[in-house]
């Protein structure tokens, strides 16, 4: 059955942007960042897809976002706080201190693992349609961000339970959240690009995440690190991020070690530069390799 109405002709096109595109081997795209901006709707829609698919066919759905960091927090508090009797930051409750670190750590680790697999998980898109490839890994980061926002609920709960009032520093939390995202974006851009050719890299990520959890000051305060090692310890970019989070949430109880923080920042920027430049270098061959 055919309806003639559905065959109605589309309106004439008006060539708005008559831009000339030249494709040549090794040519770097002048309009790369502009192109990325033009495809912002695709970014949003891919992010929305990942978020809305995430908890489909699960029973407790969104609760997973709360449960995972919460249970880890409980275990860490018992082991590091009760059993190992490590000191907390100032007078802050140990559980709260751990959770203040769990937040950025979960954000970092889940965005790292999601983004690193993102290109391979979207093989069909990569091999059939053009768009700036950076959209794919960066859109998956949004999923981690949504989980993060949901788990903020626990933070509120904990602070109420401990009757711990935040001070003005908490207003800077969004900044440090952004920092956590950028910290994960650098390495994940690099790894997801490498993962296109060598699937070995997908086995590296769980490893990094598992190691990182113990190497970063998640279950303990970074002040337990001896002073002479502290700067070196800050080479781990998550040290800066976690310290920043504790500073925001616990207020004055957890002063930031600024020299170390600056070093962490430098490492973050370096990885971001490395990730973006390597990604762009490999990007053009993704469709041939994937």
């Amino acid at each position: 059955m055919m309806s003639t109405q559905s065959l109605s002709l589309p309106e004439p096109v008006t060539p708005i942007s008559e831009q000339i595109l030249i494709l040549e081997p090794g040519r770097t795209d002048k309009h790369y960042w502009m192109d990325l901006w033009r495809y912002r709707e695709l970014f949003l829609i891919l992010a929305w897809r990942d978020v809305s698919v995430r908890y489909k066919q699960t029973i407790i759905g969104v609760l997973w976002a709360i449960l995972r960091p919460f249970l880890t927090m409980v275990v860490f508090t018992v082991i590091f706080g009760r059993v190992a009797k490590l000191p907390s930051e100032g007078n802050a409750p140990y559980a709260l201190m751990v959770f203040a670190a769990m937040l950025p750590w979960t954000l970092f680790s889940s965005s790292l693992s999601e983004a690193s697999n993102s290109l391979v998980a979207n093989t069909n898109l990569i091999s059939k349609v053009y768009f700036p490839r950076m959209i794919v890994p960066s859109a998956t980061v949004v999923t981690a961000l949504v989980d993060f926002l949901i788990s903020l609920v626990i933070l509120v709960g904990l602070m109420t339970a401990y009757r711990y009032a935040p001070s003005w520093q908490i207003l800077l939390l969004p900044l440090f959240t952004l920092l956590a995202l950028l910290t994960s974006l650098g390495p994940s851009l690099w790894i997801t690009a490498l993962n296109v050719k060598y699937r070995d890299f997908r086995y590296i990520i769980p490893f990094v995440v598992q190691f990182g959890l113990y190497v970063s000051p998640v279950g303990f305060s970074s002040s337990v690190i001896p002073d002479q090692w502290r700067l070196l310890y800050s080479l781990n970019p998550m040290v800066g991020v976690i310290d920043g989070f504790r500073w925001c949430i616990l207020g004055g109880e957890s002063p930031i070690y600024w020299t170390g923080f600056a070093l962490s920042l430098i490492v973050v920027v370096f990885f971001l530069w490395l990730g973006i430049s390597q990604f762009r270098k490999m990007e053009k061959n993704f469709a041939d390799l994937i």
């Binding site: 595109l21 494709l23 081997p25 897809r49 990569i126 059939k128 469709a287």
Partner: peptide, 30 residues
């Protein structure tokens, strides 16, 4: 623009949309 040429050049004026497959990116759960 899915893959890069190894030699020569192409000059294109205007927006290209490619339809190499129907339903690219369809998600079964949605």
């Amino acid at each position: 623009r899915i893959t890069e040429p190894s030699a020569g050049r192409v000059t294109i004026k205007g927006r290209v949309a490619s339809l190499l497959e129907v339903g690219t990116g369809f998600h079964p759960e949605l």
